[in-house]
């Protein structure tokens, strides 16, 4: 029944494949076309400019600073998110009084809308806001968080991590619960300490999940827009203007769709390259790959 079976296979994947082609691949093609053009938003004139927008990107004096901020922000978010997500999962991967409550607490920001979440943090991070109020109570004079480059970057990274780490925690929890208990018993009988067990047994066994969460987190970090827009507007200066925010400004605030599309495609290239690198590296560090 090989041929008929193959036909069934195509039939089964058809909705998903068509969906991706229509709602992802084709629009990306259109974006490429837009990037080769210059639009006048008021008159609707579209002029072909070839590589003009790409040339502009190379000469854009703000872009290096934007790329730097993007690297710092995304790197910070990914590392913190994975480490904290894993740490929380390990701490909560046992049944003790309140463990269910704590899981819920750490997960709760995930269900809060980004807008509401950042809005509240905007209040808390004010110079005279709640965070500095709490710090003052323990005798620390908190900085004016959103008004200097480094602290603003810390603030947007932190709020992004806190909001999204719950998903990773749950994914890691799921992975940890899939680790057979006998393996721990065996390792302990061999005299391994808990640190050794974690690095030699647990981590390799959950590495496929680590790969998945790493990819999802990187894509998410490169796309975090609302936090930046609400908390810092990319400032002070350009210190927290990450690429996605810059794309929005160019395309939708300054009406430069062509240049915005060019930068968006650049973002897509980054995501793709990072993913391919991870995918290639997976053979090295992912424990069992089929």
């Amino acid at each position: 029944m090989g041929r008929a079976d193959a036909a069934t296979g195509y039939l089964f994947i058809a909705p998903q494949l068509l969906g991706v082609l229509v709602f992802v691949v084709f629009p990306v093609g259109l974006a490429v076309w837009y990037s080769l053009n210059e639009w006048n938003i008021f008159t609707g004139d579209m002029a072909f400019v070839g590589a003009g927008n790409y040339q502009a990107a190379l000469e854009d004096p703000q872009l290096p600073s934007v790329l730097g901020a993007t690297a710092v922000f995304s790197g910070g978010v990914v590392v913190l998110n994975l480490v904290l997500g894993l740490a929380l999962a390990v701490m909560l991967n046992r049944r003790f009084r309140g463990s269910v409550l704590f899981r819920t607490l750490f997960f709760s920001p995930v269900v809060v809308s980004v807008v509401a979440w950042t809005l509240v943090w905007g209040f808390l991070l004010q110079d005279n806001g709640g965070l500095n109020g709490a710090l003052a109570a323990v005798g620390v004079d908190g900085p004016n968080w959103l008004q200097s480059g480094p602290t603003a970057m810390i603030a947007v990274t932190f709020t992004q991590v806190v909001r999204s780490v719950g998903i990773n925690m749950v994914l890691f929890l799921a992975a940890l619960q899939g680790v057979p208990g006998e393996l721990y018993e065996a390792a302990r009988l061999d005299g391994a300490g808990s640190r050794t067990i974690f690095f030699r047994v647990t981590l390799p066994l959950i590495s496929p999940t680590l790969l998945l969460t790493a990819i999802i987190t990187i894509v998410g970090a490169l796309q975090s827009f609302a936090q930046i827009a609400v908390l810092t507007e990319g400032g002070p200066g350009l210190s927290t203007t990450v690429l996605v925010y810059y794309v929005f400004q160019q395309a939708f605030s300054f009406n430069d769709i062509g240049y915005g599309s060019t930068l968006a495609l650049m973002l897509l290239t980054f995501v793709m390259v990072l993913t391919v690198i991870q995918w290639q590296l997976r053979r090295k560090w992912v424990f069992y790959e089929d």
Binding site: V24, V247, A264
Partner: peptide
């Protein structure tokens, strides 16, 4: 690939 394309790339064409 559908998982990797940021929405701001496709939102204008969409």
């Amino acid at each position: 690939v559908g998982l990797l394309v940021p929405s701001e790339v496709t939102i204008v064409p969409l």
